[in-house]
Design a protein around this nucleic acid. Sequence first.
DNA 1: GTTCATGCAAATCGTTTGCACAATG
DNA 2: CATTGTGCAAACGATTTGCATGAAC
Lengths: 138, 138
Amino acid sequence: MKKVSGPSARGFYRKSRQRERILALLRSTQTHPTAAWIFDRLRREFPSLSVGTVYRNIAILVDEGLVNRIDFGSTFDRFDANTLPHYHFICEGCARIIDVDVPFDQAITARVDSSSGLTARRHEIEFYGLCERCAKER
Amino acid sequence: MKKVSGPSARGFYRKSRQRERILALLRSTQTHPTAAWIFDRLRREFPSLSVGTVYRNIAILVDEGLVNRIDFGSTFDRFDANTLPHYHFICEGCARIIDVDVPFDQAITARVDSSSGLTARRHEIEFYGLCERCAKER
DNA sequence: GTTCATGCAAATCGTTTGCACAATG
DNA sequence: CATTGTGCAAACGATTTGCATGAAC
C-alpha cells in the first residue's frame, strides 16, 4: 500500500517542447483526456513521439501542480461491501481508504442544475488528508 | 469510451463456496480491499484458488449490488489542467467526465470531525448520472 | 560538457479470457 | 445431465522503465 507521491520532487525540470504542448493541450480542452488521447493528438506535431514521453511529462506536470490526476490515489480497483451511502476518506500518506461518519447528504445531488442537461442521480464525496497514524509520522 | 456495465445482468448465479467467502471477507473488514488482498487471504482456505476466480466473483457481486467498485467508471487515468477547485459529473452512459458549475463549497471539508483522528484538507465530489446525449438515447 | 529529456522497445502490473475439468442444481 | 463455476495459463491494455542518443543549460 504505497505509491502516493510523484516522480521525484527534486524540484527542477528542464523545459521541453513536448511538455509545453502537453500542458497547452490539457488547458485547451474541457474534456478530461487520457494519456492515449494526448499521445494521439501530439503525434501529428511530433511524428516520433513516444508514449513513454507522454507519461513522463504528465507525471512532471502533476508533480508541479499544473495538472491533476483524476483517480483515487490508487492504481488498482478497490471494493466495498458497505452498500449504504457513505463517504470515503483517502489518506495521502498511506493511500488507505477509510469510511467517514459524515452524514450522507442526499440534497447535495440536487445541486446539479438540470438546466445544464445533466441528470444527476447520486453523488460521492472523497475527503483527502492524513490519517491519524500518518499525521504522527510527520 | 465505453465499458460501463457489469458482466451480464442475466440475473441468475449459482452459489459457490469461493464467492460466499469473498463476500464474507469484504463484509468483515472496514478496509477497502483490492483483488490482490482478497486473493491472498483466501488462498489459505482454497490453496488452488486463482486470481481469475476472484475477479469473476467480484464482478458478480458488484452485478448483484452486494459490493461496490470504487473507481470512476474508467480503467485509465484522466487528467485535468483546471486546477481550480471544481466538481465532476461522470456520465454512466458514455463515461465522459464533465465539469459541473456547482459552486465549490469549502465548508464541506470541515464536516469530517477531527475527533475521528482524520485530518481532512480537501474534498472532491463526483456526481453520477446521464449526460444530455445519453439521456436522450434511452 | 554535463545533465536531463526523448524515442524505442521490452518489461511490468492489474485485470480479463479461452479452455478443459469440477461442482451445482 | 445440462449448465455454470474453477483453475490454469496465456492474452490484454495501460503504464513504466532501461538504455543509447539528442536537447537544454
